[in-house]
C-alpha cells in the first residue's frame, strides 16, 4: 500500500490534525476482552481506589492504540509505521457515567530522515493532563 502523504510534501513542523477519542467504561470492558488484559483496575472502582488510584483507569495500551490511530489515519497505510513508542505518564481516569473520559491526541513532524522516514512526536491529554510522554512514531512515506 502506498501512503497518502508524500515525503516531499512534509516539513519539520508539519502538524497532524488534532483528534478527540471518547473512552467510556464499556470501551474498557471491550478492550479487556479483545486484548486479554483483565487487570481489575480497569473495571473495578473499589479495587482501583484500594490501590491508591483516583478511580477506574483506562488501559495504557488503549490510549496507545488511539494515539496510533492519529498517525495511521494521517499516513493512510498502517503498515507504514516502522517504530512506535510511548511512555505512560499519567492514568486516564474513566468516570462511571455516560460521557466517560476524552483522550485528545495531536502530533507534529520533528525530523526527516533518509529512506523517506519521518519522526512524529505525539501528545495525548485527558482532562488537561498529559497521559503520554516522549511518544514518537517513525513512518516511511511514499
Amino acid at each position: 500500500m502506498t501512503t497518502t502523504v508524500r515525503y516531499d510534501d512534509v516539513e519539520v513542523g508539519t502538524e497532524l490534525p488534532e483528534q478527540t477519542y471518547p473512552v467510556r467504561r464499556l470501551d474498557l470492558i471491550r478492550y479487556a476482552g479483545a486484548s486479554g488484559d483483565f487487570n481489575v483496575i480497569h473495571w473495578n472502582e473499589r479495587v482501583a481506589k484500594s490501590v491508591g488510584l483516583p478511580g477506574v483507569i483506562a488501559h495504557g495500551m488503549l490510549t496507545m492504540a488511539e494515539a496510533g490511530r492519529l498517525v495511521t489515519d494521517w499516513v493512510g497505510d498502517p503498515g507504514a509505521i516502522v517504530e512506535y513508542g510511548v511512555r505512560f505518564s499519567a492514568p486516564v481516569v474513566v468516570p462511571d457515567d455516560d460521557q466517560g473520559a476524552e483522550i485528545v491526541v495531536s502530533g507534529k513532524v520533528t525530523e526527516k530522515r533518509g529512506d523517506n522516514q519521518v519522526v512524529i512526536a505525539i501528545t495525548a491529554r485527558s482532562g488537561g493532563v498529559k497521559v503520554l510522554a516522549r511518544s514518537t512514531a517513525v513512518v516511511r512515506l511514499a
Binding site: M61, G79, I81, V82, E83, Y84, G85, V86, R87, F88
Partner: peptide
Amino acid sequence: HGDQRFRYSRP
C-alpha cells in the same frame, strides 16, 4: 506499565 515500544518489520 511504564513504557511500550514496537519495532516493525511488517504488520
